[in-house]
Amino acid sequence: MFRKFTKEDVHSRSKVKSSMQRTLKAKLVRQYPKLEDVIDELIPKKSQIELIKCEDKIQLYTVDGEVFFFQKFDELIPSLKLVHKFPDAYPTVQVDRGAIKFVLSGANIMCPGLTSAGAKLPPAPGYENDTIVVINAENKVSAMAVGKLMMSTEEIKSINKGHGVEMIHHLDDPLWNFTVE
């Protein structure tokens, strides 16, 4: 999604009204229930969320100049900066060491990388198709990418072939390096 993304793709910037801010926060908590305890710490009541509308109907939400989450359609997707602050709240999968290189250059994640010895998938029933997942790497603490499941985790285990996770946002991609002044 952010393979190419520069300042020129930004169409407009606007401040989010506080009532809207409340609904946004509620929505975020609804999507990731574990965020509930920390949401006021992450986005204090007094902070100002800014909405940045971009090319391709991508909307970024920033707090204090840092992109916290974004949405393309209805779903809110956390940015890695937010994930690193509180990693426990999101569905997570882990890939093996051999895959890191490819993930960091923006590849979709293939099933074998999710099922090998160094990788981790959640036990059954796992996650549904189209879930937004955070991608961790073997022996690493911080997450390295955010993606969307292209088949459910159970299917990944049984089929074990082809694309498993669609890449949305990874470390060192243009969104990661994007700054608002």
Binding site: D37, I100, K101, S142
Partner: peptide, 22 residues
């Protein structure tokens, strides 16, 4: 509760991923 992540000043990634940036 919240973590304050550390990022590398050279390549901007978390330090454990520095080895993949060249």
């Amino acid at each position: 509760m919240l973590r304050s992540p550390l990022y590398c000043a050279v390549c901007s990634l978390p330090p454990e991923y520095c080895e993949f940036t060249g």
